[in-house]
Amino acid sequence: MTNGLNSTLRAPTDGWELKIAAVDNHLTPQGIWLIPYAIGFVCTALVPLWAAYRMPIKLYRQFILAMIVAALFSYVLYMAVPTYVVKPHATDVAGNDIFSQLLRHLYDADNDFSTHNAAPSQHVFYAIIIMCFMIRFRPNSRSFITWTIMGALVTVSALLTRQHHSPDLIAGYAVAVGAYYAGLALGERATFRLGDEAVPLEMSFGPLARRLRTRRTMSTIAPE
């Protein structure tokens, strides 16, 4: 969406190219980082869907509101303070392994759509928000280690696939932190007003829905 706005409302290079030269000028695209980069897309699409059936209603509402706040803020920030990142070309990728070849294909397909990205990195802030709420949902050491590693790998992959510069990652972290606390506050207020914290989400999938509703009700009313 941001890239669509970029190409529609202004030239791709209108604005500022954020870069820390000492870091970003010395990085080359590495195909192996396509794995966590792709996992970031999958998690952004599927974790909220999974959470709809597993998280307590209030926590799920806070989770979704945090993601919405982050997305809206990033669009407003882009419109007010446009930034850009020149996407790499397929020829920038070294190596002939399968991941390097896949990364070249990604660059070719991605550049057909748009030649620039923008800050903050949505890949980063979605990954960090997912990490925070999954740890909040399961506050144990295994969950903490798993999701912290996942968040770190997805974040680094945005840099080492060269889809973003390092300031985009820093901005993505900042947006994620602000959106996380905004989501907590907004979700708390909305749930209080609706008074549905102990009410299971209605789903229309027959016997599966009944089992999921039962499980969700138990997790909602379980003592903390």
Rank of each mutant, 00 (worst) to 15 (best):
D24W: 00
S204T: 08
A174K: 00
R61W: 04
T28P: 03
I128V: 14
L5A: 04
N96Q: 14
A222H: 05
Y37T: 03
V81C: 06
G151I: 09
C43W: 14
V175F: 13
R216E: 10
S74P: 01
A71T: 14
M134D: 11
A52C: 13
A190F: 05
K87P: 03
D112K: 09
A45H: 07
L18I: 07
G4P: 01
R216V: 10
L34F: 07
D196H: 04
A38Y: 08
M131F: 12
Y75S: 01
Y84F: 14
L212W: 11
Q62V: 00
V86W: 05
W33M: 09
F125K: 01
F63I: 08
R142Y: 14
E202A: 15
E224Y: 12
L77E: 12
M1L: 15
L212V: 06
F73D: 05
R104H: 02
A190S: 02
D92K: 01
A90K: 01
I145G: 11
V124M: 12
A94D: 10
R210D: 14
Y107T: 06
L34Q: 03
L102F: 15
D196I: 05
D196T: 07
A190K: 00
R136E: 13
L208M: 13
S157D: 00
M203E: 11
T115W: 10
V86G: 02
D112W: 06
P139F: 11
R216M: 11
Y181M: 05
P120G: 05
D196A: 08
K58C: 01
E197R: 07
V23H: 02
N25D: 12
F63Q: 09
A45M: 13
S204P: 04
M134F: 13
W50Q: 12
L34G: 03
L212N: 02
A38I: 09
P12W: 01
L106P: 00
H123Y: 11
M150D: 01
E202T: 15
T161S: 03
S100T: 06
A109V: 06
A45P: 06
A66I: 02
S121E: 12
I129L: 15
A109F: 08
H165R: 02
P207F: 10
S219G: 13
L59K: 03
C132L: 15
D110S: 14
L194E: 12
P29N: 00
I149T: 03
G15N: 03
P200W: 08
H165S: 04
